[in-house]
Each structure stands twice: as structure tokens, then as C-alpha cells.
Amino acid sequence: MFRFFLTGCLLAAMLPAQAGQGFYLGGALGWAMTDIDSATVMERMAAAGIPGTAQVEDEDRLAGKVLAGYGWRYLLLEGAYVHLDTPDSDFQNVGAISVDDLGDVAPASGNGAEVALLARYPFTDHMSLWLRGGLFHWEYSLRAQTRKRFTGTDPTWGAGLEWRSPGPWRMRLGWDRYQVGPDDTDLISLALVRYVGRAPAATDQRVAEPLPEPAPVASPMSPPSAPESDTAPDPHASPFTIGVLTFHFGEREPTTTELAQIVTYLDRHSEARVIVRGHTDNQGPEEYNEQLALERARAVAALLMAQGIAAERLRVSGAGSREPLADNDTPEGRALNRRVDITLPGGDEQ
């Protein structure tokens, strides 16, 4: 069953994905450490009435896995084939014991398929914390008078960090614990993951309304600018933006506080009122983003008031992540979306 699931994940990941999907493939290489030693095995032998001695080696050994999955915003469903291998054990003077007796005392670890659910929380623009839990279907072989294959299904869980590149690649540093029968194996690994077939997220395709007069509009990547000072606001015009301030990830203060052109314009047109509207990217819970967007708008309004703009001329609001300017799937797009717009309202809003 687990092999069929893993094969399905691998095949699905090869298909072109539609907008909003996130299939990925990857591999991990690391170090497996089984919590057992020779003394523990000999204690088991004594409890089972088996004579002789035992020597356990390779409790720590090279391991890895190949994986495939599908990621949503905060959750990932993942299947993998895991190669943990088994510690070497040498039994001496045990007599003619059966392979079943040996299976009760020998170190337990092995290879197999797993399916897990991961929860991911981004705490910077490039770094995320993840937690995982799932099931591991394992198998390993032992030989005494005959060879026997042991199988079972046990829980697995883990945690780690993920670094996101500007492109489709992700890098994970993780700790995973695999329970195999009576023994636990910890896997410390470094994984490389690539998203495949990801289509850009849909962006707002509305056609901009004509401006009342030709006027420069601030680029989110440059200091804000305002319309020429002798361009009076048209009370019947559509809304248009006279300034944009951008923000670093999670910050409530803008990257620049240069508002001279906007203040000059508002001083020349003392009847003009503006909307100060905050925005965020789509990282983090929406409730948090709405509060962050409002705090950003309030910070910009405070800067304007500090330069003599009356509070009653400013309408402050926050949009959270609901009004992106660019694709939130790229760091460049998210940087454009972390902003505050300073806008002259249209005729219907005045």
C-alpha cells in the first residue's frame, strides 16, 4: 500500500501543475542513530533465557531518503522511501536459536515507506519552521538457522528548518525519529527539494482608470513621489496613488521616511484628503496580516502628521494580503506587496 502511494506521488509530481498547486520532489542524506548497544541486547537475551554474548556495531551510520509531496500554504502531504539500514549484530555461543528468538532481542531498524503530514510556519521571508508526523512501514531481515523478514508499521515524527530560494528550490535541515519495533532511530539529514510544474499565481488584471492629469506615480521599489504641485485634485476623478512606501518582512516602519513631495503636494492643496492604506504579503495568518497592515498605515499617517498634515485629512485602513500588486510566489513579488499606498480618493469617496 505504501509503495503504491509513493509511486502515485512521484507520478503526480511529474504532471504539469495548475495555478496554486505545489508538487515537489527531493532527496535527503544524513546520519541514522539507533538507540541501542551491546549491553541492551545482552539484557534482552538474559530476559529471554538465551545464552551467549552479543556485539552490536554501526549504531550510527549513513542514511537517506527520496521524497515527493504536495504543498499548500501551511500544510504539506509527503510520501518517501527511507533507507535507515540496520545495525550489525554478532551473536556468539547462543546455541541453536530460531530466527524468531533472534528477532525478539536483535536491534530493530530498517528501510521502508512513510507517509507524513507537515505543518510549516514561515518566520522570515526565506526561513520556515516545520513539524511533521506520520506512519513508517518498515522491513528488515535476520538470519539464524534460516532467514526471515520482519515487517511492521510504527509512528514517525520530526522537526526542522526550511530555507526557500528565489526559485523553485528549497533546502531542509531536519531531525526525524523512526520507531521500528522496540527501538528508535533518529535521522539527522540535509534535504534538497524542488517544486515542479508550478504556475504563477493569478494577479489582479483590472484595467487602470485614466488619471485626471498626467502625474508620476511612485514605484514600490523607489522613494515615493507626488503629482506636480500645480495639479489640483479633480473632485470627479477616479482614485489615483500619489505615493507608495515599502516595508521589510514583518516590519512596521517603512524602508524610507522621505515624504517631501507628498507633503509639498498636500500643502499646496489644503482641501485634498488622502487614503493611507496598508498591505502585506501572504506569509502568516490573515488575521495577523490585517493587523500588521493597519499598523503600517498608522505609522505612515503618523509620519505625515509629524510633517504638518492634519489628522482629519487622513483616512487610515488596512487590507492585509487581499490586494496584492504582484505574485506572492516570489520574494520580489512579496517585497512589492509589503507596502502602504497614499491615494487621492475618487469623486464618489470624497
Results as ranks from 00 to 15, higher is better:
336 L>C: 06
39 A>E: 13
221 M>F: 14
172 R>N: 11
346 G>L: 11
224 P>V: 04
217 V>S: 04
294 L>P: 00
284 G>F: 01
121 Y>A: 15
69 G>R: 00
97 I>T: 04
140 Y>E: 03
320 G>F: 00
7 T>Y: 08
147 R>V: 15
5 F>V: 10
73 R>H: 14
258 E>R: 08
73 R>K: 15
341 D>N: 10
272 A>N: 06
319 A>E: 07
50 I>G: 00
167 G>S: 13
212 P>T: 09
8 G>Q: 03
126 H>S: 15
344 L>Q: 00
177 R>L: 14
107 P>L: 06
140 Y>K: 10
178 Y>Q: 10
112 G>N: 04
288 Y>K: 08
308 G>M: 02
26 G>I: 07
210 P>L: 11
245 L>G: 00
125 D>S: 15
283 Q>C: 04
289 N>M: 08
82 V>A: 02
294 L>K: 15
118 L>F: 06
28 A>G: 12
3 R>W: 04
257 T>H: 06
85 D>Y: 12
340 V>C: 04
350 Q>W: 13
152 G>C: 05
245 L>W: 00
286 E>S: 15
310 A>L: 07
9 C>G: 03
160 G>I: 05
247 F>R: 00
320 G>N: 03
260 A>T: 13
157 W>P: 08
32 A>H: 03
103 G>W: 05
110 G>P: 04
263 V>L: 06
134 G>Q: 08
166 P>S: 12
6 L>Y: 09
247 F>D: 02
312 E>H: 09
247 F>C: 00
160 G>D: 11
78 E>S: 14
240 F>M: 01
339 R>K: 08
305 M>Q: 08
317 S>P: 12
176 D>G: 10
143 R>Q: 11
24 Y>H: 13
85 D>I: 03
226 A>K: 05
232 A>M: 13
51 P>R: 03
23 F>S: 03
200 P>G: 07
202 A>T: 11
332 E>Y: 13
293 A>G: 09
339 R>C: 08
59 E>Q: 10
276 V>G: 00
347 G>V: 04
64 G>K: 01
295 E>F: 06
318 G>M: 01
198 R>P: 01
133 G>W: 04
58 D>R: 13
1 M>I: 04
37 D>A: 02
239 P>T: 09
94 V>P: 06
109 S>I: 09
31 W>I: 06
35 D>M: 05
119 A>E: 07
148 K>R: 14
45 M>N: 01
131 L>S: 15
340 V>A: 08
153 T>Q: 04
75 L>I: 14
305 M>P: 01
75 L>F: 14
201 A>V: 08
231 T>F: 14
100 D>E: 15
191 A>M: 05
321 S>Q: 05
146 T>E: 11
224 P>M: 13
205 Q>P: 05
160 G>P: 03
129 L>H: 11
235 P>D: 12
125 D>E: 15
304 L>W: 02
126 H>I: 14
321 S>T: 08
347 G>P: 10
180 V>Q: 00
306 A>V: 04
145 Q>S: 15
36 I>A: 05
291 Q>R: 15
194 R>T: 12
326 A>F: 03
223 P>K: 00
288 Y>P: 00
85 D>R: 11
126 H>D: 05
280 T>A: 03
109 S>F: 02
54 A>Q: 02
348 D>Y: 09
206 R>C: 01
87 P>I: 00
9 C>T: 02
202 A>K: 05
79 G>S: 14
35 D>F: 04
